[in-house]
């Protein structure tokens, strides 16, 4: 057993992780439509719910004052767009590469290690999340939904959110094997997260005992951080969201790498 313990792998190398990003770019040259389509989902939500349903919502209580509904919803959808990128490339992509296409089984026979692969996938998912987020941020700005110069910091916040959520999504990759579990995860984890994390309506609407549950979810922190930046309601509490997401990025990356290692090295 001592020898197996010695196999504890070295930390990932950025140089090698980038090769996996290059691999994904090469693969997506063949599927660029899939890449583009992920951008539209939150835009459609913003249009349908923000400007459609939103017309019947007078205003939303926020940070001691009120906010028009579209301005409340848009940063929530911005956070959701990073979630989309994370699920596509931190979960779906790695799920199929791990379980169906056996892509990683081939790659681990090269000098690439599992931490290299995991870091590469998180980087790629982060890039994709950032592309979606940036696109959405441009749409928001054009629609006048960014109300503060703090909004400029939304871009790094999008990257942080994309990274943290991707690392979390990689954990899902590590614990799912069957195609049926994709559906379960989507219905029972991702969709509730999308709907109930303070994205569509404020957390103050929940009964007191439910609030801590919602406030523990990553998308809540992502949405709250982005909302603080686009509305300019920035305070010390905003920093807490950043700390949460950074911690999630680090811890989830380590956990995900271990889980995936168990599946590839035996």
């Amino acid at each position: 057993m001592a020898i197996e313990a010695a196999h504890a792998s070295p930390p990932p190398s950025l140089h090698r992780a980038v090769k996996l990003v290059q691999r994904n770019i090469l693969a997506y040259k063949h599927y660029w439509i899939a890449l583009v389509s992920g951008f539209f989902e939150p835009v459609f939500y913003l249009a349908a719910v923000g400007f459609g349903v939103g017309r019947y919502v007078e205003s939303v209580p926020y940070a001691g004052t009120t906010l028009d509904y579209a301005s409340f919803l848009a940063p929530g959808m911005l956070a959701a767009s990073t979630l989309n990128g994370a699920i596509f490339d931190g979960f779906f992509g790695p799920f199929f590469k791990l379980n169906w296409m056996k892509t990683y089984d081939g790659i681990v026979t090269t000098p690439m290690s599992i931490p290299d692969i995991a870091l590469g996938e998180v980087l790629w998912a982060l890039i994709r999340g950032t592309i979606y987020g940036t696109g959405f941020l441009i749409v928001m700005t054009a629609l006048g939904l960014v109300h503060s110069p703090w909004g400029a910091l939304a871009l790094p916040a999008i990257m942080l959110s994309g990274g943290a959520l991707s690392a979390g999504a990689m954990i899902l990759t590590g614990v799912t094997k069957e195609i049926a579990s994709l559906e379960k995860v989507m219905t029972l984890v991702v969709f509730p997260l999308f709907l109930f994390s303070g994205t569509f309506f404020p957390v103050s609407l929940y009964p007191e005992y439910l609030r801590p549950v919602v406030q523990a979810t990553p998308l809540y922190h992502s949405a709250s951080l982005l909302r603080a930046l686009t509305t300019g309601e920035v305070g010390l509490g905003t920093l807490w969201h950043v700390v949460y997401l950074v911690a999630m990025l680090v811890i989830a990356s380590i956990v995900a790498t271990r889980l995936i290692r168990r599946r590839l090295i035996s």
């Binding site: 290059q22 691999r23 693969a27 063949h30 599927y31 296409m101 892509t103 690439m112």
Partner: peptide, 18 residues
């Protein structure tokens, strides 16, 4: 365990990079 999302040549190109 070839990379089925890539072409024949791209498979070799990627492995050369790895």
């Amino acid at each position: 365990n070839l990379d089925i999302e890539l072409t024949v040549r791209e498979n070799l190109e990627m492995y050369a990079r790895y």
